[in-house]
Nucleic acid binder design. Sequence first.
DNA 1: CCGTTAACCTGAGAGC
DNA 2: TGCTCTCAGGTTAACG
Length: 286
Amino acid sequence: MPELPEVEIVKQSLKSAIKYKKLSKVIVKNRNLRFKIPINFERSLKNKVILNISRISKYIIIEFKSNLYCVFHLGMSGTIHLVKKKFDKITNLSFYQYKQVPKKHNHLKFVFPNFNIIYNDPRRFGFFKLFRNYKDLNLYFKKIGPEPFSKEFNSNYLFKKIQNKKKNIKNILLDQSIIAGLGNIYVNEILFYSKINPKKEGSQISKNEIKKIIKYSNIVLKLAIEYGGSSIRDFQNTEGVNGSFQKEFKIYGRKGETCSRNNCKGIITKFFQTNRSTFMCEICQK
DNA sequence: CCGTTAACCTGAGAGC
DNA sequence: TGCTCTCAGGTTAACG
């Protein structure tokens, strides 16, 4: 489900809900996520105070008091639900458009005095990990590249990373060690804005095109965050509000439609690059 | 080192 | 209604 903007929205929602709160306990109903949830997970987090919630790439980090970090990833289908316990009734939830928490695939429950946070994940590609010090936490993210908004993600950096690559630019931008947080939707969108053919190999990308990639990575992602993320199927924030950036897609999911660029009469095509769908306008993406 | 492929899972929707 | 097939916002181990 989530790319950088959606994970950012989840992080913000979660932060306003649980920062400085004391977690009463965790109940794990199914340990078999992408990685098995460690046996000491519940014991380690019981009665721990949350100091902060942050995001690196598509990972969310919950920092607990006394050097304890819970890192989780939503995979393709992971969602977080805030369920208030007032009068024994559910008064709020998130993500799913139903007015109740999904019945199946609720794998973890974080219990707080007045509400629960539920992790739901049908495909179980998501996971939870624990780190007991800052050094180990950093080590885990060592291979993750710079965030698109960072100063480090500049023309010189990207040129160095792609100048010798035979791989196509679309797959290069999906590589989390080169740039953190992009996924299939936003890579499609960024390449459309940059007028670059997704099949073009890294070494053939010009300096000017590199500048465009950097510029539009920033513009597209910032806009998507402002719109509350993209809700293709079921994404909502923790207040139960849909994102609306899917309405702004210029290329993703628009096979057969006419290119939206002024004076371009191109028809949008769809094909696959390493099993992921790519959408492009053959006329203006060179 | 590089690039590609398969694998991990369930559910929604299309087509018959 | 029901069966089969394809596709889905991600990551990574294994291979040549």
